[in-house]
Simulated assay, not measured.
Amino acid sequence: MRRTSAAIGSAIFFLAAPGVVAGLGPWWVSGWEPRSPLPGAWMIPLRVAGVLLLLAGAAVVVDAFVRFVAEGSGTPAPIAAPGRLVVGGLYRHVRNPMYVGVLAAILGQALLFGDAGLLVYAAVAGAAMGAFAHWYEEPRLLGRFGADYERYRRAVPGWWPRVRPYHP
């Protein structure tokens, strides 16, 4: 796939997948209306932490999408998968940085808006992403990239980043 096509496809998929899960879903749950379940003095540091977590999560997701175009010459969408196994950037530390970033963005919104419903939403979204990664993505990657993916999977954790980067 050409990089221009991959970039356009990735941008569309960005809006359709993480845009819905980390943007539209939390809005449906919370209305993006701040609540104060704790006394005001406690909410200020939680809201600041929420903004930082939201921004960090968004940056991770954007970086992962760019990596698919630049390194893999494809998109994260299963219908336009990359031609090469993507193991650079944040993928050197964790196999699922997009999912980790999406969860961070949702949890950031939970703190920012003081909405416990978003914690439940994050748990449901995380379980769905975990199931999808385990039962769909990993078997497909193993079938497509074989020993390279198996070596990568053994060396890089799926959900909790390793400190030292993986070097294939």
Rank of each mutant, 00 (worst) to 15 (best):
A110H: 02
A110L: 01
A110M: 04
L111N: 04
L111R: 03
L112Q: 09
L112I: 10
L112E: 12
F113V: 07
F113P: 06
G114K: 08
G114N: 12
G114L: 08
D115V: 06
D115E: 14
D115Q: 08
D115P: 06
A116D: 13
A116N: 10
G117S: 10
G117H: 05
G117I: 03
G117R: 02
L118A: 09
L118G: 04
L118K: 06
L119N: 02
L119G: 01
L119D: 01
L119K: 01
L119T: 03
L119V: 05
V120K: 12
V120D: 10
V120R: 10
V120C: 08
V120Q: 13
Y121N: 01
Y121E: 00
Y121T: 00
A122I: 00
A123I: 04
A123F: 06
V124K: 03
V124R: 07
A125W: 03
A125R: 04
A125K: 07
A125G: 12
G126S: 12
G126A: 12
G126F: 02
G126C: 06
G126D: 05
G126Q: 05
G126Y: 03
A127D: 06
A128V: 14
A128G: 11
A128L: 13
M129K: 06
G130P: 00
G130E: 00
A131L: 11
A131V: 11
A131T: 14
F132N: 04
F132A: 05
A133M: 03
A133W: 00
A133D: 01
A133N: 00
A133Q: 03
H134N: 15
H134R: 15
H134F: 14
W135K: 12
W135F: 12
W135G: 08
W135T: 09
W135V: 04
Y136R: 15
Y136W: 12
Y136A: 11
E137F: 04
E138Y: 05
E138C: 08
P139V: 14
P139H: 14
P139I: 13
P139L: 14
R140A: 14
L141A: 04
L141S: 01
L141D: 03
L141E: 02
L142F: 09
L142S: 07
G143H: 14
G143M: 11
G143L: 11
G143T: 10
G143Q: 12
R144D: 11
R144F: 10
R144I: 08
